[in-house]
């Protein structure tokens, strides 16, 4: 399967991984070889197989709709580098 330079650019945008121009040729080669390997699976006829979303047959256990009031904001915010007045701060992102 062919990967174009534009595909690579899109992948870079989606994954937020910066790609050096000089590496793009070798990356395209790698990605194409990965896709060829993955596409191997398409050779199997799965038209009579139901999609399997999870290997476990059980049904999901559900939770009762009861509040837990054990949120310690200050403690949780210790994990964050930048915060103020209860907010988490990020670099400015605006449309």
């Amino acid at each position: 399967m062919k990967i174009t330079k534009q595909d690579l650019k899109n992948i870079s945008l989606l994954s937020k991984i910066k790609i050096d121009e000089e590496r793009s040729a070798s990356l395209i080669e790698d990605l194409e070889s990965i896709l060829t390997m993955v596409n191997k699976m398409d050779e199997l006829d799965t038209s009579k197989v139901n999609p399997l979303t999870h290997p476990i047959e059980n049904t999901q256990t559900l939770r009762e709709d009861i509040e837990k009031k054990d949120i310690e904001r200050e403690k949780l915010q210790e994990l964050s580098k930048e915060k103020d007045s209860g907010f988490y701060l990020t670099p400015k992102v605006i449309e």
Binding site: D65, E67, K68, K69, I71, L76, G86
Partner: peptide, 21 residues
């Protein structure tokens, strides 16, 4: 009363991040 995947309360207008577990 709680969120879709957690037991955090969902009152409107609470102090920022006091309902984020």
């Amino acid at each position: 009363r709680t969120k879709l995947f957690s037991s955090s309360p969902i009152a409107f207008g609470a102090e920022p991040n006091t309902q984020a577990s």
